[in-house]
Design a binder for these strands. Structure first.
Length: 863
RNA sequence: GCCCGAAUGGCGGAACUGGUAGACGCGCCGGACUCAAAAUCCGGUGGUGGUGACACCGUGUGGGUUCGAUUCCCUCUUCGGGCACCA
C-alpha cells in the first residue's frame, strides 16, 4: 500500500475493476430479492450539474448498500433526449438538434463514468432514438383505439414573431420569453390524453402510498382537485330553449342566486354577441386574457350583460346572464350562479355592477351588511330567506336542493375535478412524431402498426421560423393507409413528458425490438426506490402513474403504481455575486472568480473580483443556475480532488432532502477526511498484519473501542437503510476514526481491535466513497473486492457493557452524572443519585417529593 | 387568499419515541513542525459572571401541558415551496 492518497489513479483502478467484473450488470435472478433503484434520467443539456451529482450519488449509495445486502440490483441510466433546448441550440449554432444532443450525451456519459456510479450501461436508452420512441407511437395508437387519446380543438400560446407555439412556462407576463412579443391565443386541433378518466383512482391511491413523501401526495391531491357539489340547470328559451348548466359546491345558497355568469368562450356568450358588437369586443378581450400586468395583479372583475335571461330553477324568477372575466371555461360547465351574499367574487361583481345581493345563510349571530365583504360571509350556516329550506344546515340543505332539482330534471350531485386532460401535441420539430396521416377523403388516419416507427428526420436545422417538418417533403409525403391517395403526415410531435412517462419500464427490456415490454418487467418493477427533484412532484410523476394505469388496463403490466418509494432530494445552492452596470443591467460573476475575505474586526465580509480586485455585491444564497452564473462545475471538482471527495461533500453537507449550500471549505474538509482515513489505514498496515481478534481476552479500553465500532456499524446501517440520512452516517464514521486515532497501538490485541474498527469504517463508507474504500479494503489485507463483500453483521456481544452512565436532575435541571452497573436495582440507583454531593447541595433542606427514574438513562429528583 | 414545510452557536448541521442541547464538519483562536509558507498534527471554541470548582441564561415570539419541551398544543413573526378568480 502506498503512503500518498492519489485519487486519480485509485479511482481509475476501481472503475476498471467494476467494469471488468461487470459488477453492476443487472441479472434477473429468481433466487434473490431484487432492488430496482432509479434516479430521474437527465436531459442532455451538455454537462452534468451539481443537482445531477447529488441525485445520482444518493441513488448510487443506496444501490451499493443494497447490493452488499445481497439484493439483485438494477441501477440504469438513460437520456431524456427530445426537447426545446436542442432546437434553440440548433438555431444559435446551425447544427441539427440530433448532433447537438448526441454529442452532449457522449460527454455526459463520460462524466457519469468518472464519478464511479454503479450503472448498468447495457440497458442505456435514449428517447430520441426510433428503437425507443416507436413504442410511444405504438401505445398512442392503442390509446386512440380505447378512446383515451382523442382529437379536440385546443387553445395554444402563439408567438407571432417566432411563428411558433409556446409552452405556458415560456410565456412571461403575457409575452414570449425569447421575442418579448405579446402572445396570442390560437385555437388549433390537438391530441389529448384522457387522464381525467383515471382521476378518481389517481387520487384515492395516494392514500395507500406510504413510501411517498406526504408533501408530494398533498401536491398531487391538490392538483387533481376533487370537488363535491351539485350540477344544476337554469332553464331558458334562448334559441331552441334548454338550460344553462352550472356547477356549485354551495347548492345550499341557491335561493340567494341573483344572476348567472358565463365564460367568454361559453355558447350563450357567442349567441348574445351575434347582434351586439360591444359584447363581441368584450368577449375578444377576455379571450386574449389579461394582457396588462396591472390587470393580472389586481385581478379586477369585469363583466358585461348579455341581455339574455334564465329562470331560477326553484323560484322561477328571471335572472340576467352576464359574461364574466372571472369565469373559467375549463372548469365545470364554464358558467356559475352568482350568489353575491356568500361568495367573495360574486360579491365584488355584484357591487361593481349594482346587482341585487340577498342573504340566505345566517351568520352565527353576526350582522350581515351589504356595504363591505366580510370573510365569514362564506362560512357554512343555517338557511334563512330560503322558503322550504329555512333552518336546514349545510349538508341537509345541499341534499334537499339536489333531491328537489333531480325530481324536475334540473340537477344532480356531481364530482368535479380540477385536473384536465393532457394535451400532448407540440408544434415542434424535435420530438416524437404523432403517428397520424391526414387524407383529403378519410380525414385523420392512424398509421398502421406495421408501418411504425414514423421516423423523425435527424438532419433538419430549425431556423426560428416554425417547425421545419412543414417544409420537408420527404417526411410529409405519404399515401393514405385507407384509400391509397396522396396524403400528408401529421407534423406535430408529442410533448416530451410522454417520453418520460414509461422509460422506467423500458429499462427492464431495453433490448427488445419486438415488443414494448416483456416478462422481465415482471421481475424488476415496480421501482423500489425512485429519486429525483421535487420540481417533478406533479407533472412527471402524475403522468407516469397515468401511463402505468393505462398499460395495466391493456394487460401490459400487472401493477398500477410504478414507484413504490419516492425520494425527493433538495436543491443545490450557492452564493451569487453581481454588479450593476451603468445602464442598470445586472452582471453576475461566478463565485470561482470572486474572493471573499472576512473582515476581522467588522461583522461583514468583502467580496472582490479576482480579475480586477474591485468589489462585487453579494446577493445571498440561491439555487445554482445559469442565469445567476453561480454554478460549480462538477468536472473541475473531480479533476482537482477526485470523485470520492465530490461524493463525500455532497452527502455530508446537508440531509439529502434539504437544500445544500455549496462551500469550498466544506469540500476541503471532505478531502481532508479522506486523506486522514487513508493515513490511518496506512499507518496501521505499515507495522504488518494484525493478529486475529481474541474476544475473550480484551481490556476495558479494547472493549470500549469494539463497542464503538459496532455501535457505529449499527448506526450507519440504520441511517442508510431506514432513515436515508447519509450526513449522520458519515458523522458517525468520523467519530469512530477519531476514536481509532486516540487509541494506543501498544499490544497485538490493540492492533486487532483497530483492524476491526478500520474495516468497519471502510466498509460503512464504501457506498458513499467507493473508490478509495475499494483500495483501502485491499490495503487492509483482503484479496476480495469490497463491493462483493456482504455487509457486516453487528456483534451483539460487542455492544454489551458492564456499567452505564446516568444523568441526575434536580427539578429537571442537570446536576450530576453517576455511573451504575447495568441492570442495577432501582434502590441502588436512587441511593447513588442522592449520594452525589452536587445533588445534595441542590436538594438542601427541601423534602424529596418524587423521584422519576428512566432505567439506564436518567434520574429526576423533584423537591 | 388557501395548503404544506422550516426557524438551533460565527456558518452547514446533530439531538430518531418528551429525557445530558450544540454530535460531526467548516471557520476562528492558541500551540507543535518549518528559515518561512503551505500541508499535517495537538489543544480550545454558545453567551454572561468567576482565578477556579461552578452558577445563571440559551433552540424565531408570546403562552400552555408536563417531574422534565428543540421535540406535543395554541398565538404571532419571518423565510421557503405548492396552488391560485376551481364556483
Amino acid at each position: 500500500m502506498q503512503e500518498r492518497y492519489e485519487p486519480a489513479a485509485i479511482e481509475a483502478e476501481a472503475q476498471h475493476y467494476w467494469d471488468q467484473h461487470r459488477s453492476f450488470e443487472a441479472k434477473e435472478d429468481d433466487s434473490r430479492a431484487k432492488y430496482y433503484c432509479l434516479c430521474m434520467f437527465p436531459y442532455p443539456s451538455g454537462r452534468l450539474h451539481m443537482g445531477h451529482v447529488r441525485n445520482y450519488t444518493i441513488g448510487d449509495a443506496l444501490t451499493r448498500f443494497m447490493r452488499m445486502h445481497g439484493r439483485s440490483v438494477l441501477q440504469p441510466m438513460g437520456w431524456d433526449a427530445f426537447g426545446l433546448p436542442a432546437e434553440n441550440a440548433a438555431i444559435a449554432n446551425s447544427v441539427p438538434p440530433a448532433k447537438w444532443t448526441l454529442d452532449n450525451i457522449a460527454h455526459m456519459k463520460a462524466q457519469l463514468k468518472s464519478l464511479g456510479y454503479g450503472l448498468d450501461w447495457k440497458r442505456e436508452l435514449t428517447t430520441c432514438r426510433p428503437e425507443y420512441y416507436r413504442w410511444n407511437q405504438w401505445l398512442f395508437l392503442r390509446m386512440l383505439e380505447k378512446g383515451i387519446a382523442y382529437l379536440k380543438t385546443g387553445v395554444v400560446n402563439w408567438d407571432p414573431v417566432d411563428k411558433t407555439v409556446l409552452a405556458n412556462e415560456q410565456v412571461i407576463d403575457g409575452k414570449g420569453w425569447r421575442t418579448g412579443a405579446i402572445i396570442e391565443k390560437r385555437e388549433i386541433p390537438m391530441y389529448y390524453l384522457k387522464i381525467t378518466a383515471f382521476a378518481e383512482d389517481l387520487l384515492d391511491e395516494l392514500n395507500r402510498m406510504p413510501g411517498w413523501p406526504e408533501r408530494v401526495r398533498v401536491m398531487q391531491a391538490n392538483w387533481i382537485g376533487r370537488s363535491e357539489g351539485v350540477r344544476l340547470g337554469f332553464p331558458h328559451d334562448i334559441g331552441e330553449g334548454g338550460a344553462l348548466w352550472v356547477f356549485t359546491t354551495r347548492a345550499d345558497t341557491i335561493m340567494g342566486a341573483t344572476f348567472c355568469a358565463v365564460a367568454a368562450e361559453h355558447r350563450l356568450a357567442d349567441v348574445a354577441a351575434q347582434d351586439n358588437p360591444k359584447l363581441a369586443a368584450f368577449i375578444e378581450e377576455c379571450k386574449r386574457g389579461p394582457a396588462l400586468e396591472a390587470e393580472l395583479a389586481t385581478q379586477e372583475k369585469k363583466g358585461m350583460p348579455t341581455g339574455l335571461n334564465v329562470r331560477h330553477p326553484i323560484s322561477g324568477e328571471h335572472m340576467p346572464v352576464w359574461v364574466g372575466n372571472y369565469v373559467l371555461m375549463s372548469y365545470g360547465d364554464g358558467a356559475v350562479m352568482g350568489v353575491p351574499a356568500h361568495d367573495e367574487r360574486d360579491f365584488a361583481f355584484a357591487k361593481k355592477y349594482e346587482l341585487p345581493i340577498k342573504q340566505v345563510i345566517e351568520c352565527q349571530g353576526r350582522a350581515y351588511s351589504l356595504a363591505a365583504w366580510q370573510p365569514w360571509y362564506s362560512d357554512h350556516g343555517r338557511c334563512v330567506n330560503s322558503g322550504a329550506y329555512d333552518g336546514l344546515d349545510f349538508q341537509a340543505a345541499v341534499d334537499a336542493v339536489a333531491r328537489d332539482l333531480r325530481a324536475i330534471g334540473l340537477g344532480e350531485k356531481r364530482t368535479t375535478w380540477r385536473l384536465r386532460d393532457w394535451g400532448i401535441s407540440r408544434q415542434r420539430y424535435w420530438g416524437c412524431p404523432i403517428p397520424i396521416i391526414h387524407c383529403r377523403d378519410c380525414g385523420a388516419v392512424p398509421v398502421p402498426d406495421e408501418q411504425l416507427p414514423v421516423i423523425l428526420p435527424t438532419d433538419l436545422v430549425p431556423d426560428g421560423s416554425g417547425n421545419p417538418l412543414l417544409k420537408d417533403e420527404r417526411f410529409l409525403s405519404v399515401k393514405c393507409p385507407k384509400c391509397g391517395v396522396d396524403a400528408r403526415r401529421e407534423t406535430d410531435t408529442m410533448d416530451t413528458f410522454v417520453d418520460s412517462s414509461w422509460y422506467f419500464l423500458r429499462f427492464a427490456c431495453a433490448d427488445n425490438n419486438q415488443a414494448m415490454l416483456d416478462y422481465r418487467v415482471q421481475y424488476w418493477l415496480p421501482v423500489d426506490q425512485y429519486i429525483g427533484g421535487i420540481e417533478h412532484a406533479i407533472l412527471h410523476l402524475l403522468y407516469a402513474r397515468f401511463w402505468t394505469r393505462f398499460l395495466k388496463e391493456i394487460g401490459a403490466v400487472s401493477f398500477k403504481e410504478p414507484f413504490a418509494r419516492l425520494f425527493t432530494q433538495g436543491m443545490v445552492l450557492n452564493e451569487v455575486f453581481f454588479r450593476k452596470t451603468d445602464s442598470g443591467r445586472v452582471q453576475y460573476f461566478n463565485p470561482a472568480d470572486v474572493r471573499v475575505s472576512a473582515e476581522k474586526s467588522g461583522n461583514g465580509s468583502v467580496a472582490v473580483l479576482k480579475a480586477d480586485g474591485k468589489e462585487v455585491e453579494s446577493g445571498g444564497v440561491v439555487t445554482m443556475s445559469k442565469s445567476k452564473n453561480n454554478g460549480v462545475d462538477p468536472q473541475v471538482l473531480v479533476d482537482e480532488f477526485g470523485a470520492d471527495t465530490a461524493r463525500l461533500f455532497i452527502m455530508f453537507a446537508a440531509p439529502p432532502e434539504q437544500t445544500l449550500e455549496w462551500s469550498d471549505e466544506g469540500v476541503q474538509g471532505a478531502f481532508r477526511f479522506i486523506k486522514r482515513l487513508w493515513k490511518a489505514v496506512y499507518d496501521h498496515v505499515a507495522s504488518g498484519p494484525a493478529a486475529p481478534l481474541d474476544k475473550s481476552a480484551l481490556t476495558e479500553a479494547q472493549r470500549a473501542l469494539r463497542r464503538h465500532s459496532h455501535q457505529t456499524l449499527a448506526k450507519v446501517t440504520d441511517d442508510i437503510g431506514r432513515r436515508r440520512t447519509f450526513n449522520t452516517a458519515i458523522a458517525a464514521v468520523m467519530e469512530l476514526l477519531n476514536g481509532v486515532a486516540k487509541f494506543p497501538q501498544a499490544g497485538a490485541q490493540d492492533r486487532s481491535v483497530s483492524q476491526e474498527a478500520l474495516e468497519i469504517a471502510v466498509m460503512t463508507l464504501s457506498p458513499i466513497i467507493p473508490h478509495v474504500t475499494h483500495a483501502l479494503w485491499r490495503g487492509l489485507g483482503h484479496v476480495t473486492a469490497l463491493i462483493d463483500e456482504p455487509w457486516r453483521e453487528v456483534d451483539a456481544e460487542a455492544l454489551q457493557s458492564a456499567s452505564v452512565q446516568m444523568v441526575v436532575q434536580v427539578n429537571g435541571k442537570l446536576r450530576a452524572h453517576i455511573t451504575v452497573a447495568v441492570g442495577a436495582v432501582e434502590a441502588a440507583v436512587r441511593a447513588a443519585a442522592l449520594a452525589d454531593p452536587n445533588v445534595q447541595k441542590f436538594i438542601g433542606v427541601s423534602a424529596v417529593r418524587k423521584m422519576i427514574i428512566v432505567p439506564g438513562k436518567l434520574v429526576n429528583i423533584v423537591v
